[in-house]
Simulated assay, not measured.
Amino acid sequence: MEGRYSAAGASRGVMIVADVVAGILVLWIILYVLKANPSNDVAHWIHNAADWLSAWGHDLFTPSEGWLRTLLNYGIPALVYLLIGHTLAARLR
């Protein structure tokens, strides 16, 4: 029984991490689209975190529209984190 509960806890932890990472990326997309003040400390922190988390996906697409570029280059990594995190969590369960 102990191993089963450990796996459930690990699974839940993996899902939470994936959700938080994707949430930061989605939050940056929302802040960008709503034209948040880049000088604001919170917006700046979220942008830096989103940049770091999605560094592997930067310039994956380069449309001229800024909102579309942001949606694609941060949204796709968010989806990948969710897909990998939830798939891994399901396997742990």
Rank of each mutant, 00 (worst) to 15 (best):
Gly57Arg: 01
Ala22Gln: 13
Ala10Arg: 09
Gly23His: 05
Pro38Val: 02
Val14Gly: 03
Arg12Glu: 09
Ala18Val: 03
Gly57Phe: 05
Pro38Leu: 05
Ala36Phe: 05
Val26Pro: 00
Asn37Tyr: 10
Ala89Thr: 07
Gly57His: 03
Ile30Leu: 14
Leu72Trp: 00
Ala50Cys: 04
Leu53Met: 14
Leu79Gln: 04
Gly13Thr: 14
Gly85Ala: 15
Leu72His: 00
Asp41Arg: 12
Ala43Lys: 02
Ala78Trp: 06
Leu53Ala: 07
Trp52Tyr: 15
Pro63Gly: 06
Thr62His: 10
Phe61Ile: 15
Leu31Phe: 11
Leu34Trp: 06
His86Arg: 08
Pro77Arg: 01
Asp19Gln: 05
Ala22Lys: 12
Asn48Asp: 10
Glu65Val: 05
Val21Gly: 03
Ile30Gly: 11
Ser6Trp: 08
Ile46Tyr: 04
Asp19Tyr: 06
Leu68Met: 13
Arg93Pro: 12
Tyr74Ser: 00
Arg12Gly: 10
Trp45Thr: 15
His47Phe: 07
Leu60Ala: 05
Leu79Cys: 06
Gly13Leu: 14
Gly85Trp: 13
Ser54Arg: 00
Val80Thr: 02
His47Gln: 08
Ile24Tyr: 01
Ala8Ser: 09
Ala78Ile: 08
Trp52Lys: 07
His44Ser: 15
His86Pro: 12
Val80His: 00
Ile84Asp: 13
Leu92Pro: 11
Leu71Pro: 07
Leu79Val: 07
Asn73Pro: 05
Ile30Asp: 15
Ala55Arg: 05
Arg91Cys: 14
Val42Cys: 08
Ala18Gly: 09
Ser64Gly: 08
Gly9Asp: 08
Thr70Tyr: 15
